[in-house]
Design a binder for these strands. Structure first.
Lengths: 256, 256
DNA sequence: GATACCGTGGTGGTATACCAACTCGGGGGT
DNA sequence: ACCCCCGAGTTGGTATACCACCACGGTATC
């Protein structure tokens, strides 16, 4: 089961020594976090730092689905000691990115059935959110979304980020933060599987075209059409991703 | 503000003494906790016990919305020391029942706008979940739901529990655990406000009638009708609750 | 050679010690 | 009379010590 011990990265200030030490507390995410937009955030204390690093490691497949992880083994990766690491793990567990396995922890496995359910969930909540966004969205936000969909780049990871931003911001424009959070949570659940997707220029263009169509419908104030397009997009994205989860294309990743 | 210090209950084994000591691990709660009966209990470790007790205290308005709470002050109420209390608080924060206030903690305030959004969210996810339940639900579950709606009792707290069970189980019958969890989460968010609702026999009967109508539509396989009824029920429930949040009826509770 | 046993190392669970930052109130200054 | 300042107490944040439990591996026994 490839027990992950990852002594890889070392603690930032290894010496650090006794408890008190310097420890800057910091003002909080500050500039950096705002700039990163969709990304988890930089965060302030050791606890948020650990959370951000671990979340990033899980979503980026650096910690592979199904891997066993231990609190002490993650101290190095998280750059913090057990207490904040543990707090971060509890938060990640609530998001479904980590899971308890008996008394221990594992990185949440990729499970086809669960991914299907997450996609179904996404369809429902994003459809509802976008329906609300129609008529509520303001011109500034419309312009920002246009910039996102028109300028979608070619790099796979940039595409992932841009796509995530588009969907998150569009959902947030609905004005209901529960729906917006649910959309973000669903996207996070689906994100790891998308890394496996072979992103051909064709599928990239298809996705971008769907984004543009959705935005056009929102701008035109056509609620029914916008919701229909969003739901169709969610289903299409799931199908594209599902193909990448075919047994021979999982790149050595364990998929249930 | 009414800073909650609650020295009220004392830790189970006050003396306890040094670290090692006896401390039976396992059973945790042991005799003493079991004796407390009514208390949430049930859980295994100190951490789950603390979580259950604190969650119950928040949902039951024992800890009032807006109250400032401290980790050390909650040790007594939770029956555990800071570490498990803290873990429980992190979980409750993820559920929106606790909130950070500067460096400290407060019980999530009741906010009309937020309750409206939660109700809107509930409408979307429960509608979707029930739509899925139509055709998927099996006879045993149908029978169980019938037992719940037909026998709904008069006691306000029992009614609350029965209603919660009905909606949760119906949503779960849809087979999508994300939707089911979302419904449960939304209900939890709305639950505290329902305590303020003056539950007249009339509104009680109206709610029960709506439940029966929903179940009938589900049983009849009418997906559109079932979803429509569920959404209408969610809106109606929100309106009934909202009336109870009128400034003169909040029973001294702080509502934003 | 197979099997039962026991020690050892590692796991999460918990309690606690210590720290920096904050709050708030009293005392001394103007 | 007012205001400022400073100190005691409290808060969350963090690191760490210790526990019981468990999985694993070597060894001794049959």
């Amino acid at each position: 089961m490839t027990s992950v011990d990852r002594g890889v990265r070392e603690r930032d200030a290894a010496g650090d020594a006794g408890s008190g030490a310097v420890r800057s507390t910091a003002a909080g995410s500050s500039a950096a976090s705002g700039a990163l937009a969709g990304v988890p955030d930089a965060a302030s204390g050791q606890s948020d730092l650990a959370y951000a690093r671990l979340r990033s490691a899980v979503l980026g497949l650096e910690l592979r689905p199904g891997d066993r992880v231990s609190e002490r083994g993650l101290e190095a990766l998280a750059g913090a000691s057990r207490t904040p690491v543990r707090a971060a793990m509890v938060r990640l567990e609530a998001q479904g990115l980590l899971r308890r396995d008996g008394r221990g922890w594992i990185v949440a496995p990729l499970d086809r059935d669960e991914l299907d359910q997450a996609a179904e969930f996404r369809e429902a909540v994003e459809g509802a959110a976008v329906r609300l966004a129609v008529g509520r969205i303001d011109l500034d936000e419309l312009a920002a979304l246009h910039a996102l969909v028109d300028g979608e780049p070619g790099e796979p990871d940039e595409l992932l980020g841009a796509s995530r931003s588009f969907h998150s911001r569009l959902a947030a424009a609905g004005g209901n933060r529960f729906l917006a959070d649910a959309v973000a949570a669903a996207l996070a659940r689906l994100e790891r599987a998308r890394w496996l997707e072979v992103r051909t220029a064709e599928s990239r263009e298809r996705s971008a075209a769907e984004h543009r169509a959705i935005l056009a419908a929102v701008q035109a104030g056509e609620a029914d059409e916008a919701e229909r397009l969003v739901r169709a997009h969610a289903r299409a994205a799931r199908e594209r991703t599902a193909a990448a989860l075919a047994p021979d294309r999982t790149r050595g990743l364990h998929v249930t």
